[in-house]
Nucleic acid binder design. Structure first.
Length: 800
RNA sequence: GCCCUGGUGGCGAAACUGGUAGACGCACAGGACUUAAAAUCCUGGGGUAGUGAUACCGUGUCGGUUCGAUUCCGACCCAGGGCACCA
């Protein structure tokens, strides 16, 4: 019937608890450190799902393995506990969101313990804890001191249905990411973080990281660094000029008009009298468009001539100035020089507005803009040169005449850091009656949330905190002041939690500097690819700020990053309640045990792949574990266990140790486990099982299915927990085989195999290959042109 | 449209720096054990033709390089993820 998973798993979970088996002494610097981190969960009302399990099992295996390999392993867990669902629950029920959150945390904890994850629970943190909020706010004050946090009244995305402002990243196609409600533009007082000040450092740091290629690409694209030129255009007849940004300064001779963003400050100043009405009407049209419409209409290039002309600094030509909404106010200089012949957008605009074009590169522009590299024409200073050479020449020239310079711009925008919500960290500043901002003193932290009778958004955009009169009004140095009602976004707490884990109860500083220096950066960080940009970019940003303050000593927080794939429903669709394909881990643990679930989730395929759930999978994993168990439980197998080595398993065992060790360290658990199955199968076939090899199997399997392996270790007569056992090693001499089987190809087709002594020289291999009857048959009557012998691999015979 | 990732049996997947494609597992089939079934243990499974040894075909498609290509190169098709007028 197999082992009693309930009894065994409960027994060992209790043992680990009572012996504090996985508590990490962070001050023990005698062993090399290994810091392995999971992206901490948001404690939702739905509990842990199989996807969480995949993530946490993967890291748990690494943690358990590295402990056995002699590392001091830090493997903590905590709760990303602020978040919208708790607030929405509070709005509905009028209960405090913390109540909801704490209940969920307890449920998650129970599930994690049942899964047997080897977390150091003494390091547990939640972002909503007062002594955590304190340091989140403390970091905010550092950002404020540095001028990296500032108030801005720019238009922001307001979602009437949620009654709150959203970050650009939370708006998808003009609708809120959560709920899918329409979003409009509305000017409001906001806190911004100047992440753009770190754009360069964030870009540069990417090259030092051992991260998935696609994630590095995404961050690179998000930061969007581009090298170009700022060119100065004077406005004809007025004493003003404007800048444009271009990455193609080489096409300057082909500039037929200039285009300002509708919001450009110069528009009002230089619009001619007769064009005022037209411009006004256009601006009105733009303003009423939502982001959705603005991007939707991107097929048609709209814009109007504003009755002014700019002077092209390269040739003194006067070109008309337009405004058009395809020019973005907050990128580059908010203005472009338009070269219809060599830019797709300018081409479309010119066609639509009857503007001519001048070709300045050789190429076909009859149907579309030519954007490739070629020789320049119609460009006196650079005729005959290609793009790169031309840029160099023109950059130098523009610099000399004071009309431009090389410039770097970024797509990255500043981070909208405030939310008009209750359930977030209060922003630790107050406003005097004259609107002067006064940051709180460090000694006043943490600034905690007041209890409210109602948690509904005020609807005007201000957070429910505006209703907490007693909390809101304060006296600072005898003067009346009002607290900031905005709170921080959920991202805030997750920006630095990996630091707090080192020293979660420190009330003097965010963590003991000695610990920060020793333990950071995180050696391995595992979590979903959905955080490829936002969380991982924000956390890197804060880390770099803390680095500049000397608080952390390394420039990047997460040395190696890994994204586990998504587990899909058995119908290949994303698991969701509405699709009815959600798999509940609790039921599976109940029926097959945590060990089996852990095993299956690692065995089902590569960790990074998104794979469909297979209902038989967990049962199959369980059957394998039963099979391992029977190696000692079944009398006829137990009889075979011997303290004397008959060497029959030497090769397969040592090969398995090598492969499993390498595969596990590379997070290729599926192939490592396959090899453990091979070893198990061989043990079944063997007449004698050398006991140390059996122990080796148990140890290698223990990170994956720890409870049963602890039990088996005990059954074999060993004391204590496997966590103090040593990871097995292999000997090269056991990996040597006496002979190898290699293929024999004739003209690329496999015609036979030979088994030959590994030491055999090429000549002997060649002879053995030619001697094969199957080979002879093909060679007869043909001339052998060439024989290629690759030792231990293949013999390739070429005939005509 | 642009960027990234991937496409291998009925299914999940393996395959070192180009070297016997399909390890391991699921499902399936056969055998042993059993009165029987379940469980277990053993064996067999890429396709087509053939009783058979064997032959031919086969890693999304088409071409190329090579003695040899899942692996390298070119073009294309499909799926997933990201970005979206970024000058």
């Amino acid at each position: 019937m197999g082992y009693d998973h309930k009894k065994i798993e409960t027994k060992w979970q209790k043992y680990w608890d009572e012996h504090a088996t996985f508590k990490c002494d962070v001050y023990d610097f005698s062993k090399p450190k290994y810091y392995i981190l999971d992206m901490f969960p948001y404690p939702s009302g739905e509990g842990l799902h199989v996807g969480h399990f995949e993530n946490y099992t993967a890291t748990d295996i690494m943690a358990r393995m590295q402990r056995m390999r002699g590392y001091n392993v830090l493997h903590p867990i905590g709760w990303d506990a602020f978040g919208l669902p708790a607030e929405q629950y509070a709005i509905k029920t009028n209960h405090h969101p913390e109540q909801f959150t704490r209940t969920n945390i307890e449920r998650f904890k129970k599930q994690l313990r049942r899964a047997g994850f080897s977390y150091d629970w003494s390091k547990e943190i939640a972002t909503i804890d007062e002594d955590y909020i304190k340091w989140t706010q403390w970091i905010f004050l550092k950002l404020y001191e540095d001028g990296l946090a500032y108030v801005s009244y720019q238009p922001v995305n307001f979602c009437p249905a949620l009654g709150t402002v959203l970050a650009n990243e939370e708006v998808i196609d003009g609708k809120s990411e959560v709920g899918g409600f329409p979003v409009i533009r509305k000017p409001m007082r906001q806190w911004m973080l100047k992440i753009t000040a770190y754009a360069d450092k964030l870009e540069e740091g990417l090259s030092t990281l051992d991260w998935p290629h696609s994630t590095l690409e995404m961050q690179k694209n998000w930061i969007g660094r581009s090298f170009g030129t700022r060119v100065v255009f004077d406005v004809k007849g007025k004493d003003v000029s404007f800048n444009v940004f271009t990455t193609r300064v080489d096409t300057l001779y082909g500039c037929m008009y200039c285009c300002l963003a509708p919001e450009h400050p110069l528009v009002a100043k230089i619009t001619s009298e007769d064009k005022k009405d037209e411009v006004e009407a256009y601006l009105k049209k733009i303003a009423s468009k939502s982001d959705l419409e603005r991007t939707d209409l991107n097929k048609e290039k709209t814009g109007v001539f504003i009755g002014a002309y700019a002077i092209n600094p390269i040739n003194g030509e006067e070109v008309p100035i337009y405004i058009a909404d395809y020019v973005l106010a907050n990128y580059g200089e908010g203005a472009v020089m338009a070269v219809p012949a060599h830019d797709e957008r300018d081409y479309a605009f010119a066609k639509a507005h009857g503007i001519g074009m001048r070709q300045v590169l050789e190429g076909d522009i009859s149907k579309e803009a030519f954007t490739g590299d070629a020789k320049h024409i119609n460009s006196p200073l650079i005729n005959g040169l290609n793009i790169d050479e031309s840029k160099k020449v023109l950059n130098e020239y523009l610099k000399k005449i004071g009309k431009g310079e090389e410039k770097i711009t970024y797509k990255l925008r500043d981070w909208l850091f405030s939310r008009q919500r209750y359930w977030g960290e209060p922003i630790p500043v107050v406003y005097l009656d004259d609107n002067t901002i006064v940051p709180l003193n460090e000694s006043d932290l943490p600034l905690t949330l007041p209890h409210l009778d109602e948690y509904k958004p005020s609807g005007t955009g201000e957070s429910p905190l505006a209703l907490a009169k007693d909390w809101l009004d304060v006296t600072i140095d005898g003067k009346h002041a009002r607290r900031e009602t905005n709170t921080m976004p959920q991202w805030a707490g997750s920006c630095w939690y990996y630091i707090r884990y080192l020293d979660p109860h420190n009330d003097k500083c965010i963590a003991d500097p000695k610990l920060i220096e020793h333990w950071l950066p995180v050696d391995l960080y595992v979590g979903g690819a959905e955080h490829a940009v936002l969380h991982l970019l924000y956390a890197r940003f804060w880390h770099k700020v803390l680095f500049d303050h000397g608080i952390v000593k390394c420039e990047e927080p997460f040395k190696k990053l890994f994204h586990q794939g998504m587990i899909l429903g058995s119908n290949y669709e994303k698991m969701s309640k509405s699709r009815g394909n959600v798999v509940n881990p609790d039921d599976l643990i109940e029926e097959f045990g945590a060990d089996a679930l852990r095993f299956f989730e690692m065995f089902m395929g590569p960790l990074e792949a998104s794979l469909p759930w297979n209902d038989n999978g967990v049962e199959a994993a369980r059957k394998y574990l039963d099979r391992v168990y029977r190696l000692i439980e079944l009398p006829e197998n137990a009889k075979k266990i011997s303290d004397t080595n008959d060497h029959s398993l030497d090769y397969v065992y040592h090969y398995t140790v090598k492969k499993v060790t390498e595969d596990f360290l590379n997070l290729q658990y599926n192939t490592g486990l396959a090899q453990l199955m091979v070893l198990t199968n061989e043990m079944y076939k063997a007449t004698t099982i050398y006991k140390p090899y059996l122990v080796g199997l148990i140890i290698m399997l223990s990170p994956v299915s720890p409870h049963l392996m602890e039990e088996m270790y005990e059954m074999l007569g060993y004391d204590g927990s496997l966590s103090t056992a040593n990871w097995p090693t292999y000997e090269d001499k056991c990996l040597k085989k006496n002979d190898v089987t290699i293929g024999v190809q004739i003209n690329g087709k496999l015609r036979g195999t030979i088994t030959i002594d590994v030491e055999a020289d090429e000549k002997a291999i060649e002879e053995a290959a030619l001697a094969l009857p199957g080979v002879q048959k093909y060679i007869e009557g043909h001339e052998i042109k060439k024989i290629i012998v690759i030792k231990h691999r293949i013999v390739s015979i070429v005939i005509n």
